[in-house]
Design a protein around this nucleic acid. Structure first.
Length: 812
RNA sequence: GCGGGAGUGGCGGAAUUGGCAGACGCGCUAGCCUCAGGAGCUAGUCCGGGCAACCGGGUGGAGGUUCGAGUCCUCUCUUCCGCACCA
């Protein structure tokens, strides 16, 4: 018998798949399509088993769907722009392109050594002009539609990375990459108007039935819709008013003061009118500094100061003091709020601290008092009535407020997509004409990591002529957030080499949306919301029909080592190549799928991997034992009537396993139990092999089991399965194989073991025919000696029979 | 504080959705085979009692519904994750 040498099988079959381009596909309307995608990779250099788990999960699904007759698109690519490559350039002088392409080459090798069935012909890297020119093309379309716009805004500035960060990239007041405390800075920035789709993104999320509830909840919170009203409070003794946003307009009779965020536009105006402008502004500036950094670490107390001015509460007509408060957010609502200390805990804290008036206007039973004409109304009714009154008086309106803000995409960095815009002193902002795209990144020889965008230091890049007037103009020197790259790459895979358009709508119409998308939960908000946004943009450009890009989302759990996330700095990284050298890629693949359901976090164990290797070796040996006297199943049918009891039992196990594995993989998506079902089949096969006769019938029965096993195992352990499949005479390979068919008649039990309970306690098991009548079953159950022992001398009150499952006897 | 999960042997996890709790694997124990074994095979492995048949207990805790609860309901504890002064 041949020894099991998985490493040789890896080499042999990986070469075969590459030579035959086994996983390349084209649109074929005669076949149902399946688009299986794993989140593409940032080319950090080395993939560890945590990363690789995701690709294995996707590959199992892709290979399974192929066996089920689907035309499967399973591509891979590289999210290749980003800070680390540029930081490496600053540190060691290595050109970002060189290091990135080198990392891609290495990681691609790692994935190929795992036997992941990618259509490598569609591979893309976002740092190549063939790809990023379409970022620029799309940016121009969005500019034309008003979805990309420029404004001066306060941005999060990382003093170490010397760049602007999106709000989403600020974690606990610090830079998401380097952990430095983020500062505030005013800059001209490009934004994408994602807020135009806020309501739709929120509501459409309800229809994403195959997304994890957790992700949908996170997106809902992120979009943060709240219904309320805007109301104007006139400023006493001068023109103008303060507009506030509130969800509790019913409490407006209890609004005893008004607060401004420190960055509110009125702050500097009121400062000028105050006795101590300098002190006023310094105080406000101090609050702004506290803002993100301090607030999010939770240690900043509520603080504020009186501006010296009053506003008029438009419903009580009383003057209310205007304060500046550090806990009012400039970026939310109008940046000003009415304070109702009696009915808001935060306002109450503040009012107590500064001794401001507290007026109750809503009783515990939610009915208003002290509220003029609205007294006696319920809070709900009052909200509607007061909003309506405000509208009639022209001082307010109902307003839906979102937490979601427009997406700032400008980055003052080199290693990203150049924004295709030109600033002309005559014509203003002018897009680079489509036929001049791509605007390619110039080579830079020295990376300092200081100051403005590195591109600003390349005169040949910056100095251009205006496309409109032909006069001298200046090119935009910011690059795009890398999240732009990853927001539509899944469409590019459908038509990866198109040099006329981002993609042919017909090809995307065939392949998209993505049927199965898997990746880390860390992308639950940013990547997945931006992608949903881009799908809507493409939809509104008339390029795609659908609006939701991912039908089914799986968020895979992390792989821990010694209780921690794997990381180079912790030194707890498990390298897939080392494991493959020891046990072969199939054992690694199988282990990763067997250890736990894919969403769960798991702890890596070497012994678990060894167990999976042992299982594959067992499969190998038992298949080899039956290989010599194998008969070709394709030309012989099994005569069920001629089989021995042991043979019938073996077949029953085979078909029951087919049923379980099919349901586990396809319906329940529990790969781990699918594997354990196959392990049970192999255990049974060993008993059959050791104890049974070696008749030609036995041979057929064993072969049926083994061949079904090979096919079912092939998504998990494709190299071993291919080799065995070939050994069994299938020269055409598993690509031509089809999923085994479950035969209910063969799987049907000949007898059943039915548990019998007396007063809820298990007392016996009786063996009966599967189609036994209830009355007969009851008789047999009651006749069982142990049941007799527990019912003797007692009255049988009731007997419950659960068909084919259980008999429950109640006695008193 | 708000929201979403999760609590089952020594460990990872099963339990076909209200019907035999602990499948499968890891680990461990004993035996066989072996010059040897990080190989292979066989048996055992929830806890307590018993040679055994069997008996009692058991899914974080307390109640409840039911002939029957890991699963459903109420309360509670622990823990992980996300958001967090959003007016």
């Amino acid at each position: 018998m041949a020894e099991y040498h998985p490493q040789e099988l890896d080499k042999k079959w990986q070469a075969h798949w590459a030579n035959t381009q086994a996983f390349e596909v084209t649109e074929d309307p005669s076949k149902p399509k399946f688009y299986c995608l794993e989140m593409f990779a940032y080319p950090s250099g080395h993939a560890h088993v945590g990363h690789v788990r995701n690709y294995i999960i996707g590959d199992v699904v892709a290979r399974l769907k192929r066996l089920q007759g689907f035309n499967v698109l399973h591509p891979f690519g590289w999210d290749a722009f980003g800070l680390p490559a540029e930081n490496a350039a600053i540190k060691s002088g290595i050109d970002p392109e060189t290091s990135t392409l080198g990392n891609i080459a290495h990681m691609k090798g790692q994935l190929q050594r795992l036997g992941i069935s990618y259509a490598w012909g569609r591979e893309l890297a976002t740092c190549l002009p063939e790809y990023y020119r379409w970022n620029q093309w799309l940016f121009t379309r969005m500019f034309e539609k008003g979805l990309a716009y420029r404004r001066r805004s306060t941005v999060n500035w990382c003093p170490v990375d010397q760049t602007v960060l999106a709000n989403e990239q600020v974690v606990d007041g610090a830079c998401w990459r380097c952990g430095t405390k983020v500062e505030q800075k005013d800059l001209e920035q490009w934004f994408f108007r994602i807020t135009a789709y806020a309501d739709d993104l929120l509501h459409a999320a309800e229809g994403l039935s195959k997304w994890p509830e957790k992700v949908l909840t996170m997106q809902r919170n992120w979009i943060g819709r709240s219904e309320g009203a805007r109301v104007k409070f006139p400023i006493q003794g001068r023109d103008g008013s303060i507009e506030v946003f509130t969800t509790r307009i019913d409490t407006i009779f209890g609004a005893t003061f008004v607060m401004l965020a420190p960055e509110h536009a009125l702050v500097s105006v009121l400062a000028k009118e105050s006795a101590d402008e300098k002190g006023f502004l310094e105080q406000a500036q101090r609050y702004r500094g506290q803002d993100r950094a301090g607030r999010l670490t939770g240690e900043v107390a509520k603080e504020g100061f009186f501006t010296g001015r009053f506003a008029i509460n438009p419903f009580t007509n009383q003057p209310v003091p205007i304060w500046v408060a550090n806990y009012v957010l400039g970026e939310y609502g109008t940046g000003a709020v009415m304070a109702v200390p009696a009915h808001d805990e935060r306002d109450l804290d503040f009012a107590r601290k500064y001794d401001l008036p507290i007026v109750q206007v809503v009783r515990d039973d939610d009915v208003l008092f002290n509220s003029g004409a609205y007294s006696g109304l319920t809070a709900d009714a009052a909200r509607a009535a007061i909003t309506e009154a405000a509208e009639e008086r022209g001082i307010g309106e109902a307003k839906v407020q979102f937490r979601l803000k427009d997406w700032g995409i400008s980055r003052q960095r080199y290693w990203g997509t150049p924004i295709p815009m030109i600033h002309c002193p005559v014509d203003g902002v002018v897009p680079v004409p489509d036929d001049q795209l791509p605007v390619t990144l110039p080579k830079i020889t020295e990376f300092t990591g200081r100051g403005d965008s590195p591109l600003a230091s390349v005169p040949e890049f910056v100095n251009v002529t205006c496309p409109k007037c032909g006069g001298p103009a200046r090119r935009e020197t910011d690059t795009m957030d890398t999240f732009v790259d990853s927001s539509w790459y899944f469409y590019r895979f459908a038509d990866a080499h198109n040099d006329q358009m981002p993609f042919d709508p017909k090809k995307v119409a065939y392949w998209c949306p993505v049927d199965f998308y898997s990746g880390g939960v860390e992308h639950a908000i940013l990547h997945l919301i931006y992608s949903r946004f881009f799908a809507r943009v493409f939809h509104d450009l008339g390029m795609i029909e659908h609006t939701e890009p991912f039908t089914h989302l799986l968020t895979q759990g992390m792989v821990l080592k010694d209780g921690h996330v794997m990381s180079k700095s912790k030194g707890n990284v498990v390298d897939p190549d080392t494991m493959i050298e020891k046990f072969g890629s199939d054992a690694l693949r199988l282990y990763v799928m067997f250890v736990a359901p894919p969403e769960k976090e798991v702890e890596w164990t070497d012994t678990g991997l060894e167990g999976s290797f042992r299982f594959l070796a067992r499969v190998w040996r038992v298949a080899n034992q039956w290989q010599a006297d194998a008969v070709d199943l394709r030309h012989v049918t099994i005569d069920q009537g001629a089989l021995t009891a042991a043979e019938r039992s073996m077949r029953r196990k085979t078909h029951d396993t087919i049923r379980r594995v099919t349901a586990d993989i396809d319906v329940r998506q529990q790969m781990n139990t699918a594997v354990s079902a196959m392990m049970e089949l192999v255990n049974e096969l060993y008993l059959f092999t050791d104890k049974g006769e070696r008749s030609s019938q036995a041979s057929l029965v064993a072969r049926e089991a083994i061949e079904a096993l090979m096919v079912m195992l092939s998504p998990f352990a494709p190299h071993t399965a291919e080799e065995l499949w070939q050994m069994y005479g299938h020269s055409e390979g598993l690509a031509k194989a089809s999923w085994p068919v479950f035969d209910a008649a063969v799987a049907k039990a000949e007898e059943l073991e039915i548990p019998v309970q007396v007063n809820g306690k298990l007392r016996a098991r009786v063996v009966v025919a599967p189609d036994i009548a209830d009355a007969e079953l009851e008789k047999i159950a009651l006749a069982d000696p142990n049941v007799q022992a527990h019912t003797a001398g007692k009255t049988i009150k009731k007997v419950v029979i659960a068909k084919g499952r259980l008999v429950s006897v109640v006695v008193a």
